[in-house]
Design a binder for these strands. Sequence first.
DNA 1: GGCAACCTACCTTCTAGTAGGATGATCGTC
DNA 2: GACGATCATCCTACTAGAAGGTAGGTTGCC
Lengths: 195, 195
Amino acid sequence: MTKLTNTSDQILHCARSLIIAGGYNGFSYADIAEVVGIRKASIHHHFPSKVDLVRTLLVTYREEAEAGIAELQRHHPAPVDQLRAYTGYWAACIGDPTNAFCVCALLATQIPVLPPEIVSEVRAHFRTLSTWLTAVLEHGARQGSLALSGTTQSEAEGFMAAVHGAMLSARAYGDADVFRVITEPLIDRLVAVHP
Amino acid sequence: MTKLTNTSDQILHCARSLIIAGGYNGFSYADIAEVVGIRKASIHHHFPSKVDLVRTLLVTYREEAEAGIAELQRHHPAPVDQLRAYTGYWAACIGDPTNAFCVCALLATQIPVLPPEIVSEVRAHFRTLSTWLTAVLEHGARQGSLALSGTTQSEAEGFMAAVHGAMLSARAYGDADVFRVITEPLIDRLVAVHP
DNA sequence: GGCAACCTACCTTCTAGTAGGATGATCGTC
DNA sequence: GACGATCATCCTACTAGAAGGTAGGTTGCC
């Protein structure tokens, strides 16, 4: 239970929102300073460079994501419910502008201009997510609750890509509902047709 | 047949590549000046402001996209083939770093920090694409060559989102093959199972 | 005393954008 | 065909502000 008044946490939280809005080059130390109510130089005390700040932010984000997945798996034993919980989590986020995109997905779009330390964290998140989804689909297929068309890996990559694309469309249209419209059929299709 | 040595075309072409790499805030007039072999001030002669430059670039991009779709429809009468031609076009682009992403899809990720004139162009492109895909799916469903699960609109949005997500994954993994792995099953699934 | 947290003041480099001048092609006019 | 005027294109030189980052000092807690 980290206290919310912790300055470095405030900086990280603020930076995350700003990245979600405009990516790596879309925010500055000055922007954070204004929101947190601190001077630019003080941010450098907590995070010497911008790369340090964003890398720390991503490490935290990945930990939270893994914890979230673990939590989600404890609450939902059935693979279908795990998938629904995952897309449901994001459906809830889309409405909140400061949380309407996966930080790693957004940064991934800018990979060619990102510092290498950031790229490796982003890439690692994609692998984590894809590995987890593969396991969930694999589980569902084994127990017969999910019907896969191609390989488990390709289905997992397709699912992840569709979710990210749904976030993008929701942002493009400025309409949160689009996310649900796209992701719900995604799961319905996987649910095995039982006679 | 516009001549390739046209300076303003060179500027637009260069800016497009730079946006594809890093988005709206990921490039500067200085970057373009260096590539085109011209001074910064000369770019301002052709495009007074950055917004002018990017808006012009998007208008051109959208025209090219619409022309490409028209061409594609002339060459491929069958809806399935139109979808394959569309994903095939992007599959070919993914390999080339300067063309590995849809400009509008990339800019859409940064909508919250984009000038409104840019946002409306990006949004318009999404609507154009979605409208076209809806028509193609509708056509295929009517003639029985495509099997849709939900509404035509939701299938179209899902298809577009999956393609955009596939571009993102290809970039995240740094692996062009991922795009094909994700998009090919997408079309296979739509092809009606004929007994 | 030592140290974390914060400050003011400053640096360099980059940002989009401007002012105004040089060059050269195209133009109607004689 | 020669004439000057106009205009597009490009230049040098500059601006104000924002970028990330640094130096060094003050405060207050353990």
